[in-house]
């Protein structure tokens, strides 16, 4: 099989032509670096995305704390992760890197805080 992809690993956003079969990626061209290979193989056989969003904070200097999945989760589960996180609330203070939801939806990825939120006042 053949197809066109945009590699999103870095902002260069290479336009890549790829060829693959049932089980493996056979070739790519027009990529400026070698990271594109892994990304495109992922896009074909197991597309994943890092989810970045925010979680409600009780008693914090901000009403929300930003979070991310520490590793990318299957693309098909992105909205399920959003649903899982919709009504989660944590208490301030929150530290950067703190685990908010471990192993979210059994994906093996922890949801972690990406900033500090201090107590209000």
């Amino acid at each position: 099989m053949k197809g066109k992809f945009v590699c999103v690993v870095c902002p260069t956003s290479c336009d890549v032509n790829a060829e693959w079969n049932e089980t493996e990626l056979l070739s790519i061209d027009h990529a400026q670096c070698k990271l594109a290979w892994e990304f495109i193989r992922g896009e074909i056989f197991d597309p994943r995305r890092t989810v970045t969003t925010s979680i409600m904070v009780d008693g914090g200097e901000l009403p929300l704390v930003s979070v991310k999945t520490r590793t990318p989760v299957p693309k098909a589960q992105v909205l399920a992760v959003m649903d899982r996180l919709a009504d989660v609330m944590v208490r301030a203070p929150v530290d950067i890197g703190e685990v908010i939801v471990p192993d979210v939806l059994g994906t093996g990825s922890d949801v972690v805080a990406t900033r500090k939120v201090k107590h209000k006042g």
Binding site: P11, T50, T52, S54, S66, T114, R115
Partner: peptide
């Protein structure tokens, strides 16, 4: 709060606050 910052200098996809 999205990621993708720092790929050129830190060689990782950081979020803005990080």
């Amino acid at each position: 709060i999205h990621d993708g910052f720092g790929t050129k200098v830190f060689e990782q996809a950081l979020t803005g606050p990080e």
